[in-house]
């Protein structure tokens, strides 16, 4: 077993997901078979290999520090599930 039901519960917390018992069983099983398949990678010697996070040789993409036309506040809030006084509204945090 690469990953236990407890691991799945922990990863769900990190992922901000709430799982049903059924989902926990299902994900434990499917993630295990996927992670077992990933074992293939251990056959490759990568000791002297640099990682590739990105294929293009692009670094430090700058633009002039000039203000652009911003998104109109009303437009920015148009999809908000809840709003008040021109701000996004969420449940009490503190």
């Amino acid at each position: 077993m690469k990953i236990s039901k407890q691991d799945v519960e922990h990863v769900a917390v990190l992922s901000r997901l709430e799982l049903s018992e059924n989902e926990k069983e299902n994900y434990t099983e499917t993630l295990n078979s996927i992670l077992e398949y990933m074992e293939l990678l251990n056959r490759v010697d990568t000791s002297d290999v640099e990682p590739t996070a990105h294929v293009l040789p692009l670094i430090n993409i700058f633009r002039e520090d000039k203000p652009h036309e911003p998104l109109d506040r009303k437009m920015a809030l148009a999809n908000a599930p809840d709003e008040e006084d021109g701000c996004f509204k969420v449940p009490r945090i503190v």
Partner: peptide, 30 residues
Amino acid sequence: VKRRIMLGTYALSSGYYDAYYMKALKVRTL
């Protein structure tokens, strides 16, 4: 979508980052 979020979160989580994510990036180079 939930499965992939969890798989990705697991691969990036403390203790597994090098074994999974970093390994995969190196294989990507190859």
